[in-house]
Design a protein around this nucleic acid. Sequence first.
RNA 1: GGGCGCUUAGCUCAGCGGUUAGAGCGUUCGGUUUACACCCGAAAGGUCGUCCGUUCGAAUCGGACAGUGCCCACCA
Length: 913
Amino acid sequence: MAREIAKAYEPQQIEPRWAEFWVKEALFKADPNAPGPVFSIVIPPPNVTGSLHIGHMLEHTEIDILTRWHRMRGYNTLYLPGMDHAGISTQRVVVKYLADQGINYQKLGREEFEKHVWKWKEEAGGQIIEQMKGIGESCDWSRERFTLSPEMSRNVREVFVRLYEEGLIYRATRLVNWCPDCLTVLSDLEVVHEERQGHLWHIKYPVVGTKEFLTVATTRPETMLGDTAVAVHPEDERYKHLVGKKALLPLMNREIPIIADEIVDREFGTGAVKITPAHDPNDFETGKRHKLAEIDVMTDDAHMNANAGAYAGMDRFEARKKIVEDLKTQGLLAKITDHTNAIGLCERSKTVVEPRISTQWFCKMKDLAAPAIKAVEEYKPGKEGTILIIPENRRTEYLNWMHNIRDWTISRQLWWGHRIPAWYCKENKHITVARETPAKCATCGSANLEQDPDVLDTWFSSQLWPFSTLGWPEKTQDFKTYYPTTLMINGYDILFFWVARMIMMGIHFTGKVPFRTVYLHSLVRTGSGEKMSKSKGTGLDPVALNQQYGTDAMRFCLASMAAPGTDIILSDDKLASARNFANKIWNAARFLFVNLDKFEQTGAKLEELASPEVRARAPYAVDGKVPLVDAWLFARLAATVEMVNDALANYRFHEAAQSVYQFFWGDFCDWYIEWVKPELQSVDRERATVAWKNLSAAFDAALRLLHPFMPFLTEELWHQLPQATGAKSIALGHFPEADARWKNPDALRDVAQIQEIVGALRNIRADLKLDPKKKVAAEFATSETATGRVIQTNQEALERFAILSELRIVPREQFDAKNGVVRSTATFDVRLMYSEAVDANVERTRLKKEIEGLQKAISSKEKQLGDETFRSRAPEKIIKGLEATLAQQKIEQDKLLKRLRDLDGGSSQAAGT
RNA sequence: GGGCGCUUAGCUCAGCGGUUAGAGCGUUCGGUUUACACCCGAAAGGUCGUCCGUUCGAAUCGGACAGUGCCCACCA
C-alpha cells in the first residue's frame, strides 16, 4: 500500500476525525473496578455561559497531558468533565439575551424565567463541552456533570440542612455588599477593589445652640442624608467640648448627636467623622455601639429613596453632585481636597458596590477552616489527610487567608441557582430548614409556608464538586475508587473562591481531603502583562488559534511555557515554533513511510519488519552488535523518558516539553535519521532490515513519548504504522519506559565525541565559506585509543556529516598542525586539508579569541585551586573536577598557542600581504 | 496600609549555591543534501537591574535601593 501523506502537516484535516473517534469509541471511559493505581481528576467546571478561552486551554492542556500520561502508564484513570451553572453570570447573560428580544425578565416571573434559562442552556449553553471534545480532551463523557442537576440539588440541600443543624449556617441582618446592577448581595470575594482618584469633601455641620461648626470630611457626601451622628475621638482636645451636644445635619435639618468614639483617627481629615450606619461598615459598627438609628437612604438600584428628602429619586452620583452644589450655595462646604481611595466594584458588572443593611444567610467559617488549615499545614508526602499546594507561595497565601477567614454571605437575590431550602411561616416568621419541601412549620405547625425566594452563591454548589460528582452521599463504587481525587489543577485566581472551600467541605462532609495535591497554574497574560479579558478585547481566541496552528501546536506551546509560578505571555512566534515542531514530526513520519513503501516494493512483509512485537524488541543488532547510533538513540530515549517522567511528576511541563523537543528534533531527526539514511537504502538487505526495524521502533517510541503533549498528530501517525489487530489507539498503549536495555553511557559518550568532531569540521568549512558540495580530505589524531576506535568504526558517517573525501586517522606524533585548517581540543586534533589561501588574519583573530577565553577560565581555576581555604573546604568532587578540566584546558591552550606561533612565523606568506 | 512576584542575549523566557550562563524567536553568513525552506549547516550576541553582605565559591542565599506587575485590606 502506497502511503499518501501530505507534504505539510494539516491539522485541520486530521483533528476532527480523531476527536470524533475518541468520543464515539468512548475510549476514555473509566472503570472503577479496573486494576492499577488510581489517577482521578475532576475538571474545574467551566461556566455554562462560557466558551473556551485561553486560560481554559492552558488548564485543560495541563490536565489532559497528565491524564494521558498516567493512563499510558497503567493507571486506572478518570478525567471527569462538567459545567457550572454560574448563577450571576448566567442570569446576566440570559437577562440580556431576553432583553435583546424585547422581553423583560421581571415581567416574565420567576418560573417562566427559569424555563427560559434552561432552554437557553440547551441551545446556547454548554458550547464549551463541544469545544473540549473538539480539542480531544480525554474525558469520560459518560460521567459529565452539571452543578444544577437534580443530583447536585439533592446534595446541596443535604449539605445546607446539615450545616444549618450544626449551627454553621445562620440568618442575620448585617451590612453587606450590594450590587445595584445585579440587584443582589455579594460575598467579600466578589467585590474587587480599584484605586480611583476621588475627593474628600469637608462639610460644616452647625452645632446646635452655638455659633460653632463641626467640620467633617467625607468621600461620599450623598450618604450624609442618612447620618445619625457625628463622631470625634474622645481624647481630641479640639472637640471635647462638643461631645454630648447636637449638630444640625445640613440639607436635612435633623438634629444628630455628637459622640465620642475611639474609631476616629484624629490625624485623618478634620478628625470629625459623620456616622452613617446604613451605608458604611465602620459606621454600622459604631452605630451598634451607640445605639444609633440606621437610615437607609437608597433604593435597590442605588437611587435615593424617600428618606433622602428633596433628593429622592436621584441616582446616587447625581445626588452627590447636587448635594455638593447645595452645600456650596449654603456656605457649608469648607473645602474639597484630592484623595485616592480603593473603591469596591462588583466582579461581574463592575458597578460600584453599595454597603447596605440587609437580612441574609451566612456560613460560619472559623470552625470549618480549622481542619482545612491543618490538612495543608501538616502536609507530608504520603501522609493521609494532608494536601500539597504547589507552588509554595500559594500555600502561604492560602494559609494567610484561611487564618483570617470571615463569614461567607451565601444567599443571592437571583432566580438562577439552588433555591435556599428554608421556609417561613407567614404567621410567626418561624424558619423551617428541610431536605424536602415541608408541609408545616417545624415550630408552630402552621401550614402557611413560603419558601425563601433567594438562591445560593454559585460557589456553594461548586465547593461540593469533588465528591458530589462521584455519587456522594451514597457510597458508590465511583466514590470508593476515585475519591479523594488525585489532583486538582486550576488557576490561582480561584484559590479562595473555590479551592479553599472545597477543602473545607470535603473534610467536613466526607472526613477526607477532596484531593491530595493542588497545582495552581499560571495565568495567560497579554503582551503588556494584563490578565486577558474578552471585554477589553485583549483576549486571544484559542479556538481560532487552534484552527490556525493546530491544537497540538497550541498544547505544546502552552506546555513549553508553563513554568510553575510564572505567568505566560503567548505570541505568534511561539505558536509558529510549536507548529513547526508538529510539522517536523509529520515529516519525519513521511520519511519513514517513504522507506516503508520501498520496502514493500521489495516484497517484504511490513508486519515482519515493524509489528508492535517487532518494535518492542528493538534495538536490533548487526552481526551481534547494535550499531552505535541505534544504541545511542535508545540511550537518549531512555534519558528523555526519565526527564519527562520526572518533570511531569513535578508539574514542570516546560521541562518535559523541552526534553521531548530536543530529543525528537535534535537527536532523532538531526542525527539519527541523517545517520541511518544510507543503511536504509543499503543493498545488503539484512543490514537495511535492521536499520528499518530500529528506525520504526524508535519512531514508535517517540510517538508514544509525544502523545500526551500532541495527541492528534501522534494518533494519526501511529495508526499508519503497521499494527497488529485490535490496537485501537495510541492513547491506550504504553508510555515508553526507561528500559535498562536502552541505557548506554558508552554510546552516549561516543556519539557526543563524534558530534564534537563533526562540529569542528563544519565550523572550519563555514569559516572558509567552502562550497557545501565540495568534498575535502581531513586528518584526525587522538591520544585516546577508545576515541580512535570509535572514529574508525564510524568513519563513513563522519565523512558524510562533514562532507569529507576521506578521513585519515594518523598517530598523534604524525599529525601536521601547520598546514590546512586545524581545530583542537584536549582529546583530539582535526585538520581539514585545504590548501588554498587561508586568511591568516581571520584565523589569528579566531585563535586569539579562543585563547583569551581559555585563559580566563584557566586563570580563575588556578586562582581557586591555589587558595588554601578553598582546598580545605570545598568538596573533593568539585576540586577533582576543577583539576581535570584545568588540565584539559591547558593542553588545549598549548595547542592553540603553538598554532598561533606557527601562523605568525609564516604569516607574510600565507596572508600574501 | 499589608503581602507576594519579577528584573538574565535585540525580543519572550528557562536556569535558582559549584567548573567558559541556556532555549525559542529575531539577526548575520552559507545552502534547491530525493522527510521537512514550517528546512539544513555555521556564527555573532550577556560585567545575569544597582549597591552591600553571607560563603572557599553567588545569576542562584540575605539585606537595602530602583524600576515593574499582581494579590489582600471597612481609615471616613
